[in-house]
Simulated assay, not measured.
Amino acid sequence: MNLNTVSPKEAHTWIRQGIWLFKQNPLGFLMLIFMYIFIAQLAVLIPFIGVLAVLVLTPTLSVGFMTACRLAILKERILPTVYLAALKSTPLVRKRILQLGLVYAALVMILSFILSMLVDFELLLPLLMSDKVTTPEMIQEIYLLLFYGGLFYVPIAMLMWFSPVLVAWENMPIPQALFSSCIACWRNRGAFFLYLAIWGAVLVGIPLTIGLVFDVFGLSQVATFIVAPLSMAGLTVMHCSFFATWKACFADQESAELIA
C-alpha cells in the first residue's frame, strides 16, 4: 500500500471514475443508497439509541459500499449483504470496525455539543416541527448552523474518510488508520477541496436552481419529481467516487488504473 500525492485536477478524474463505476451496476448501487437512507430514517424514530446505532455502524456501512465498488469492477453481483462485509471478516477486524464506529459517534456527539453552544436550536425548533414561515433570525441561525457545522466537521471527515477501509482491508489499528486517513486528506487537500466544491454545486446548487426556476412558474410540486431522482443519482455517484479517491491516494499505479 502506498500513500500517494495527486494534483488538484485529479478531482475531475475521481468524479469521472465514480460515474464509470455507477454505470457498471446502477441498480445495485441505488439499492444500497436507498437501503441506507431508509434504515437511517427508521432509526431516527428511536430517540437517541437509533441515531447512536446509525453513527456506530457508519464505518461498517462505508466498508460495505466500498466492497460493492470492488464487486462492480469485477462484474460480480451486488447484494444487500455486502454491507456486512466488515462484520463477516476476522474477529479482530470486526472488533476494530465497531470500535471505530464508537469513535465516530463520540466525535459527532462532541460536534453536536459545540454547535449547541454556538447556534440557538430553540429558535430553529419551530421550523423543524412545522411549516412556520421563517423569520430573519431563523435564517441567520440556519446559516450559522451550516457554517459552523461544516467547519468543525472537516477534521472529522479527514479522520474518517479512509480509516474504515484501512481498518478492514489493510488490517490497521484504529489510531494508525485515523492518522493515515488524515495525512492522506491533508497531502491531497487541493484535490479534495475541488472535489467537494464540485459535489457541493451538483448536490446543492443544481437542485436549488431547479427549485427556484419552477417556483417562479408556480410549479414547485413538479420540481420535487425532478429534483428527487436527480439528487438520489448524484448522491449514489458521489459514493461511487469515494472508491476512486481511495485508489488515487493509497493504491499503487497499476492497481489505480483498474477503473477508467
Rank of each mutant, 00 (worst) to 15 (best):
P173F: 00
S7I: 13
M138I: 06
T58M: 15
T209C: 10
T245S: 15
M1H: 06
V216M: 08
K75Y: 04
N25D: 15
D120L: 04
L258E: 15
H12I: 14
A184V: 02
E170W: 00
V119A: 02
L42H: 02
R77D: 04
Y195F: 12
L84K: 04
C249W: 03
L115Y: 01
V227P: 00
A260I: 14
L258V: 15
K23G: 07
I78C: 08
M232R: 01
G18F: 02
K95P: 01
R189Q: 12
L212K: 09
M158P: 03
Y83V: 07
V167R: 07
T13L: 12
L196W: 10
C182Y: 07
V93Y: 00
T224Y: 08
P229Q: 09
N4W: 01
P47E: 11
M172C: 08
P91M: 05
F65P: 03
Q253C: 06
L57Y: 06
F38H: 01
G149I: 03
M138H: 13
I114M: 15
R77E: 09
L52M: 13
I142K: 09
G50C: 10
S220N: 07
A260M: 14
L219G: 00
T135I: 06
E10Y: 09
L42E: 05
A197S: 12
L146E: 06
